[in-house]
Design a binder for these strands. Sequence first.
DNA 1: TTTAAATTCATCCGAATGGGTGAATGCACT
DNA 2: AGTGCATTCACCCATTCGGATGAATTTAAA
Lengths: 223, 223
Amino acid sequence: MYADKEIQVGGYKTINMSEIKILIVEDEPIIAKNISMYLNNSDFTVSGIAYDADEAILQLQQNTPDAVILDINLDCEKDGIDIAAHINQGYHLPFLFLTSYSDKETLQRAKLVEPSGYIVKPFNERTLLASIEIAISNFAQKSNKDVPELKQEKINKHLLSPLSEREFSVVQYIYQGKTNNQVATDMFLSLNTIKVHIKNAYLKLDVPSRSMAMVRLRELMLK
Amino acid sequence: MYADKEIQVGGYKTINMSEIKILIVEDEPIIAKNISMYLNNSDFTVSGIAYDADEAILQLQQNTPDAVILDINLDCEKDGIDIAAHINQGYHLPFLFLTSYSDKETLQRAKLVEPSGYIVKPFNERTLLASIEIAISNFAQKSNKDVPELKQEKINKHLLSPLSEREFSVVQYIYQGKTNNQVATDMFLSLNTIKVHIKNAYLKLDVPSRSMAMVRLRELMLK
DNA sequence: TTTAAATTCATCCGAATGGGTGAATGCACT
DNA sequence: AGTGCATTCACCCATTCGGATGAATTTAAA
C-alpha cells in the first residue's frame, strides 16, 4: 500500500513524507486550519478538510488519503467514531482521534474501532506530528507482517535445546511452505543433509511432523 | 494474557482497570512522581518506577507489568528505545514513549520498535491516560488476531471458487497441524474422503501441498 | 423432475516425508 | 591429542501425502 510512498519500514527504504496525504475531519474551522498549518509545516500534505461526516466520507472516496485525523464530536448525526468504523470497513488506513472528549464512555466506544492514536485537546504540535508518524509507520509494518519473520533468538528462547544456525535456516524454509527438495536447491545442499537438519529441528521443537512444526513456530513467534 | 484482567476487548468482557500494572521508566524523579500520580488518580496501578535501564530490565523481569511508559533519554548507556527493543524481544507488552525528544533521528529510531504511542513533553494528563488505554486495548485486540482463527467467510472472500463446508472443516484441521488420519478420526470419516476434500481444497486455494496451504491460510486471514 | 453440486468411499500409483544407521569433515575448546 | 559439536552426505525402510479414476448418495436448485 505504501510501496510508492517509500516509507521507512525496517530501515531499508528511503523516506519521502511530502507525498503522504492526511485528511482532517474537524468541524471547527479555526482548529482545522491550525492542524493543517502544523502538517504543512512538517512533511505532510493535507489532502482535504472535512467539516462533517458526509464530507469526510466523500473525501475518503474521491481523494483517498494515507491517514486521517478525526475529531470525535462533529455536530451532526454521525460522529468521528462512526467515520472511523466506516474507514475500518471499507479502507485500510490508520487514523487518530484528536478531540476534546476523553470521558469513559467515549473512550470505550473509541477503543472498539482501534484508533492508531488518541490525543486530547489542548494538544501540543509535536505530539500530534510524532503520533501521526508513528501511526503510519506502525500501520505499514503491520501490513508487512502478513508473513511474520521468524527470529532465531525468539524461537530458541523457548526451547530446551536451541536450534543451530543450519537447523534454523532449514526451519525458515519450512515455514515458507517449501519442500525438502526446494530447500536443498536453495541452500545448495544435498537432500540427505536437509533431512538430517529437519529431523534434528523436529526433535528440538518437539514436533513429529512438518505441519506441527509450522504450528509450533507460529506459536513461538507470538510468545 | 489479559484474561484475568478482564479488559474490554470487543465488548464482551467486564472492565477492571485497577489491576492493570504500569511500569514507569523516567530518570527525572519529579516527572516520574507526576506521571505516577496521574495514573493512580485514574484506574491504573504503578508497578514500579525505574530511573535507569538496568532497573527497568530488572523490574520487567521480577514484576512484569501490563504496559510500560518510557522516557527515551535516560542519562546512561542504554536509552528508552533500547529498553523498548528489549521488551519486544523478550516480552509481549505495549509501551509508550513519553519524552522531550521529537527530532527526526530519534523518531526514526523509535519507529523501528513499534511503540504503541509517542507523546512529547510537555504533555497533557488526559492525552497520557487515553493513550495508555488505547494502547492496551489495541494490543489486546492485536494479540487476539495474531492467532487468527480461520473464518470461512474471510477465506472465501479471496478465492475464485469458495471452499465448501466440509472442505473448510478439513482445512481447519490441517491448519492445526493434524495428519489426514487424525482428521479422518476426528470427523468420523474415511481417510479416502478426507483426501478428496483436501485435494479439492488445494485446488481452490491454488496450492500444491499441505505446507503451502498453511502459508496461504496465514496470508488470507491477515488480508 | 432433471440437473448440478456436495459429500461419501474405494483402489492404485508415484512422490514426499520421517526415521534409523553409519560415516567423514571441520572447528573450537581442553 | 582428544573431546564435543555442527555440518555434510549416503542408503534403506515405513508412513504419509498428492493425485487420478470411478462411483454411490444426498441435497439444493432450476
